[in-house]
Simulated scan of single mutants.
Amino acid sequence: MADLILHHFLISPFSEKVRLVLGYKQLAWKSVIVPGTMPKPDVVALTGGYRKTPFMQIGADIYCDSTLICEVLEQVQPEPTLYPRGTKGLAQTLAQWADSTLFWSVLAPPRNTGYMLAGMGDDAAAQFAQDRDAMKGAMLRLRAADAAAACKAYLLRLSGMLVTQPFLLGEAPCIADFSVYHSLWFSHQFTPLVAEMLDQSPKIICWMQRMALLGHGQMTPIDAAQAIAAAASAEPLTLGQGHLSDNIFQDEHGIPLGSRVTITAESFGPESTEGILVAATRSHFSLRRHDDRVGVVHVHFPRIGYVLNQVT
């Protein structure tokens, strides 16, 4: 199998989610640090437009969004599982809530941007803020006071799930643990109000310490040029025989395979990826696209959270 290459940056919450999954599964992986703001020419060469962090590359296959990345890692290394038998649906539903509702709630109160952007000059810090505002677009944002009230309620509920067991749904971590953890990990460092709430929640703090002990696996740093060369020297995996085994066409849009389409996130991150639709299954979309630097790649997205449109 080609190397697992994670394109990420250090303070990205969703990157920490994937790094911990790599550690839990004790996988070896290559690390490419991407810019925190646009322009990202090396990222766009691989993804065709998707610029959110992280994404994972395996040869000439590019997997976007942490939800899909985790499903791919489960195929690569099934044990220990992220989706325990009997609670898989519950774990996935809780994970989706954590990656969306919980995430935006704990990030809404004022953040310590001085510490978060330490080392950046004033111009770079302003560019970072403008970049994130552009990614949010017209997305509805919680007011800080409303978010703080929601955080208190959510943390109380999560704490209650840890009264009799070490992880959210049992004796071992599952996808829900990784999805809840990453935004709390970020907020504990950079959102003082949420950090104070967490410090008053000893069960959650102990759980976070257990999660952190999973580590990040065996990481080897490489640069973007090496990742691009790896894609250029590979061919995309045969659909249905790679890391996404679900290949049954599920048509919800009246758009046939082989059509030129765009895929765009429903909310955060308005940039689209354009290509030829080669898979539309119950769980994911796949596009074939060509770039002069990387050749032919398949770019994969989870179905939930993304919008498919035909190019006319």
Score class of each variant (00 low, 15 high):
265 A>L: 13
241 Q>L: 11
278 V>N: 06
108 A>T: 04
62 I>D: 03
37 T>S: 06
95 A>C: 02
109 P>I: 03
121 G>F: 07
274 E>R: 08
61 D>G: 03
292 D>T: 15
61 D>R: 00
8 H>E: 09
42 D>R: 13
27 L>H: 00
53 T>E: 00
270 P>H: 04
109 P>N: 07
303 R>D: 00
71 E>L: 10
151 C>P: 01
251 D>C: 12
62 I>E: 06
197 M>V: 07
39 P>H: 12
42 D>M: 14
94 L>C: 10
308 L>M: 07
37 T>E: 07
143 R>H: 14
265 A>V: 13
230 A>H: 07
113 T>H: 10
213 L>V: 13
231 A>G: 03
258 G>S: 00
95 A>Q: 02
5 I>G: 03
232 A>I: 02
60 A>W: 00
233 S>H: 12
14 F>E: 00
240 G>T: 05
182 H>Q: 10
253 H>R: 13
195 A>K: 08
169 L>H: 02
161 M>S: 11
127 Q>G: 08
104 W>R: 13
285 F>H: 02
49 G>Q: 00
63 Y>V: 05
64 C>Y: 00
195 A>P: 06
196 E>K: 11
68 L>Q: 00
241 Q>P: 06
284 H>R: 07
108 A>N: 02
298 H>G: 01
67 T>C: 13
224 A>Y: 03
272 S>G: 07
13 P>K: 00
86 G>L: 07
97 W>K: 02
181 Y>R: 05
241 Q>T: 12
59 G>N: 00
56 M>E: 05
52 K>D: 04
111 R>P: 09
76 V>Q: 10
174 C>S: 15
238 T>D: 08
120 M>F: 15
216 H>A: 11
85 R>G: 07
229 A>S: 13
225 A>D: 13
311 V>G: 07
244 L>P: 02
192 P>L: 06
55 F>S: 04
163 V>G: 05
80 P>N: 01
216 H>Q: 13
204 I>S: 05
71 E>K: 13
129 A>H: 14
198 L>C: 08
3 D>C: 09
33 I>L: 12
101 T>H: 15
44 V>E: 09
270 P>N: 05
138 A>T: 15
166 P>M: 07
199 D>P: 01
176 A>H: 03
227 A>D: 00
39 P>F: 15
127 Q>S: 12
73 L>T: 01
301 F>S: 01
